[in-house]
Design a protein around this nucleic acid. Structure first.
Lengths: 336, 336
DNA sequence: TTGAAAGCGCTAACAT
DNA sequence: ATGTTAGCGCTTTCAA
């Protein structure tokens, strides 16, 4: 049996209240006694039981993470960040994988509420009313990453997708491309799919180019979907000479589709990726990419959540972080 | 305030023990009373407090996962599997990231013990005495994945690395390569680095080829390290025309190194990867790879762990799962 | 500054 | 079959 606060108290000849006080520094304790208690704690290797503590404090020091797929660089890097920051604040991460299924997400939120998590990081593809009602009804602090919501209670950290997509598109424009496709995740408001489209359109119209609806496609976040869509697109000439994809994963699907259709990247078509996860510099050609501070976004999300849990002031608006643009080898000047 | 067992008892006009009994089915309760209690539970939306339950039962329905890096396909896929199976048994996953640091792993095990997790999946690069002593002293069920240990208490699920590496090497041999390098993670027993070497050596000697120590290198699991090592190796002619890497990540580092040194894959050098994670078919050239049932290994690990937790019979020996070999495009017949 | 005691929500003897 | 009660290990009034 592990040593408890009682054992420590007995060995140090003090009451358990005193031991509790020296552990938590919750009230003054005379130096000599504190000293003695500390010694006993070290000798016995006593560790306070967090479960008992949770019970009386009504806090679990647990943060729930709901993600659509762990085996993804994007999610993995965010999870790395969250775990790191959580540890700093002595929180632990309870991990749930929804496979992007909304019903499952709802169940998971319920489960987490009953597990008494103190806050939830919700990485849902399409967060909706049901999520927010559940969260609000249970007064559960929550953060979204790169998702929009009208719900003023939910925190969120995002980049400016419109501006980012504009920059990505402009890069291709500057390289002399005019026939440019956009592969976004989807067309909804929540995922910024619409903002991405606006950025793309703006970049084109600044150059006096009208956008062609046939070049705006949806890839559902993943390489496989983007591969299908682009393979389809490349069946008809003239093919676009530039493609912007709004996730790294989709960018790889795009590149593979281009290659498998017998074209070269960047020789025949230049592609711009979007997150700068580890794969962006691992893949060949290395991906030219709009770089999001993915790790930082995870870290910020967690800090926001903890602030909310602590009742500290939190921003009413989404926290907008900056982005960079990194040119690598998947894009080049258009060949005539 | 959330509704408690007391509230339910009062509303149903029974004692809290009775409520507890109907919740857990731990003892018979007369149908009418049970009925009434269930009604009250539904009306009030009562959910038993798992923290209180943990405290008295000394069980948390939590399983700890210690991994070296979440943002990796290998770890991500195993985590996906673990989460999936855990849910089936109504366990949740507490996620810890050690960054491969042994001291951190030790701290994490301690933390998990104090958090009362019921079992631990330990994905340590180098599990040693300290880990096992801690685990044993606390009677903590645990599983390793692809790691060896003398500790008979720890469960493990592995593939036959010697046989697997032999198959990978033979593939290259059959393709006419003779000058073949092996990039293994490291040379220790625990990681099967030595078994891998034996398989490699056996394959060569079966063909009457003596192995060259200069062609057996260590890549520390990751692409970056493998990249360095191989870049170094390619400085001197003749370069190997075939390379076996014992993780997919390292295989990518190898391929990139080969390419950056001005050679072609598979034109100049054929490479064989090792796990068949998602990247293996996403990368170009698609990786010829020794395929481990990564997802299944995660699933099996979790099932073993739960069996151990339940006190059911578990195997004394590591569970050895099979492997496949998948030829894709990173290897080809040697050109003269 | 210290200790005694109540109580967090639950399970499990024990008693009836 | 049901209820009473004693904890699980801890924090926190309340008294001294």
């Amino acid at each position: 049996m592990a040593v408890t606060i009682k054992d420590v108290a007995k060995l140090a000849n003090v009451s358990i209240s005193t031991v509790s006080r020296v552990i938590n520094g919750s009230k003054p304790v005379s130096p000599e006694i504190a000293q003695r208690v500390v010694e006993v704690i070290n000798e016995t290797g006593y560790i306070p039981n967090p479960v008992a503590r949770s019970l009386v404090m009504k806090k679990s020091r647990l943060i729930g993470a709901i993600v659509p797929d762990i085996a993804t660089f994007y999610v993995g890097e965010i999870l790395n960040a969250m775990e790191e920051i959580a540890k700093t604040y002595d929180y632990d991460i309870l991990l749930f994988n929804s496979y992007g299924d909304v019903d499952r997400e709802i169940e998971m939120i319920e489960k987490m509420v009953s597990k008494q998590v103190e806050g939830i990081v919700l990485m849902s593809h399409f967060p909706d009313e049901r999520h927010f009602k559940l969260l609000n009804d249970n007064h559960m602090p929550s953060v979204l990453i790169n998702r929009k919501t009208d719900n003023t209670d939910a925190l969120s950290v995002v980049i400016d997708h419109k501006a980012a997509t504009k920059v990505a598109t402009e890069h291709l424009l500057e390289l002399g491309h005019e026939h440019i496709a956009l592969i976004r995740c989807d067309s909804s408001e929540e995922t910024f799919g619409n903002d991405q489209f606006m950025g793309y359109k703006d970049a084109l119209s600044d150059k006096g180019i009208a956008y062609n609806p046939e070049l705006v496609l949806e890839g559902n976040f993943k390489a496989e979907e983007a591969y299908q869509v682009v393979t389809q697109l490349l069946q008809n000439e003239p093919i676009p000479t530039g493609i912007v994809a709004t996730t790294d994963d989709m960018a790889i699907g795009v590149i593979n589709a281009v290659i498998d259709c017998g074209y070269k990247v960047p020789g025949d078509v230049s592609v711009v990726a979007f997150q700068n996860t580890r794969i962006a510099s691992l893949f060949r050609p290395k991906l030219t990419t709009l770089a999001q501070p993915v790790y930082d976004m995870g870290a910020i999300a967690l800090r926001l959540l903890i602030k909310k849990i602590q009742g500290t002031d939190t921003p009413d608006e989404p926290v907008v972080v900056g982005f960079d643009f990194i040119q690598r080898n998947s894009s080049q000047r258009r060949e005539e």
